[in-house]
Computed example of a mutant assay.
Amino acid sequence: MDLGVTALDTAATYLGCRSHEVLRATAGDLVPRFALSTKVGYFEGGHSLAPARLRKAVEQAVMELGREPDVVLLHNPEHSQPDAEALAKACGVLTDAATGGLCESWGISTWDPRSLVDLAAPPPDVLMVRCGLLVGIDVLEAAEALVTGWRPRQVWGMSPFGGSTSEPVWEKFDPAMFLRRTSPASRVQATFRAAFALPVVEAVAVGTDNREHLRELVDSLELEVDDQVVREYRQLLRQAA
């Protein structure tokens, strides 16, 4: 919060299914001061889009967090390989949860959106997708197809570093080429800032275990992305595919 972070994102099954309880115990009375999103869909026995299980998971999240989440996301629905009817029913559970006051709004979080492109869904308030320089063109364009088809109010990104800032790939080139040359930036900052354009997202979720890492990322938000370089990069991705 001191760094300017105003939103927290978690999921029911993070931290061995203890994420909500740990967050509440750790943050205490600070929790209501953040916009809070969580995800449902994974259970100890695996993934499920069964309406009754999703409804119970939302209710349990409210109880564990001690407050209603601002957003509840359907967690990787592609994992259950739904047809249009199954996806619509699962979305309906979250729509009803929002209408009934169990959350402010609802959305869908998808790691691999390719199988969802041809499925209709009620317009989610939020769509969360992978973003950044390591996202393949097929996943990138599938995410953009969902934005066009589903028309979410907001689009969020996740995993901008492909899992870690220490991956060898980040030492093989200078991601600052994706920025307008207005001010110096570290490799981490340039990678993070470019992630907001691949695909275009309004917010990006990152880990919170390193305070200095967070500070570096927050400081990068004033940097400008070079849209022409992004377009050229996308063309290279298509050619490579």
Rank of each mutant, 00 (worst) to 15 (best):
R231W: 02
G4I: 11
S109C: 15
L73P: 00
V31T: 10
D118C: 02
S166E: 12
P168A: 07
G92V: 03
G136Q: 10
E141M: 09
G46R: 10
P113K: 14
I108V: 15
A240L: 08
E167P: 00
E167C: 01
G101A: 10
A97F: 03
W150E: 06
L49A: 07
M128Y: 00
R114Y: 06
S159L: 05
L74G: 07
R67Y: 02
I108D: 04
R67I: 00
L237A: 02
V129S: 06
T38C: 12
P160R: 06
A25N: 06
W111M: 01
S37T: 13
A27I: 06
S183H: 15
V58W: 13
T26Y: 12
L3R: 08
P175W: 12
Q154H: 15
L223K: 02
N210W: 06
V117R: 08
L221H: 10
A35H: 07
Y14N: 03
L140H: 10
C131N: 09
D29I: 01
A121D: 00
D29M: 08
Q154M: 13
W106P: 00
D174W: 12
P152R: 15
L146P: 03
L237G: 09
R193C: 07
D9H: 10
V58S: 11
L237H: 10
R238V: 04
V22G: 00
F43S: 02
L119Q: 07
T26I: 03
A57K: 03
P199L: 11
P123F: 03
A61S: 15
L140V: 06
A176Q: 11
M128F: 00
S48V: 05
R211Y: 14
A185Y: 10
C131S: 14
W150F: 10
L223G: 01
A98V: 02
A143W: 09
P184G: 13
A88S: 11
V201H: 09
T6Y: 07
V31L: 15
M177V: 15
G163K: 12
M1A: 13
T10S: 11
K89C: 06
R234S: 01
L116D: 00
G41D: 04
H20W: 11
A203Y: 06
G149Q: 14
Q60Y: 04
G149T: 01
V155D: 04
R53W: 07
P69E: 10
E68W: 04
L198W: 02
A52E: 15
N210G: 02
A84I: 01
R187Q: 05
W150T: 05
W170N: 02
L116V: 03
T99V: 13
V139I: 07
P124V: 13
E167M: 09
Q228R: 11
A7Q: 15
Q228V: 12
G157M: 11
R67A: 05
F196V: 01
D125L: 06
L223E: 08
P199Y: 08
E68S: 13
L237T: 04
F43G: 00
F173W: 15
L217A: 03
N76A: 11
Y233N: 02
T13I: 06
Y42L: 14
L73C: 09
E21M: 05
V201N: 10
C91M: 13
A98L: 03
A35Q: 14
P51E: 09
A25L: 05
V31H: 05
D112S: 10
H75S: 06
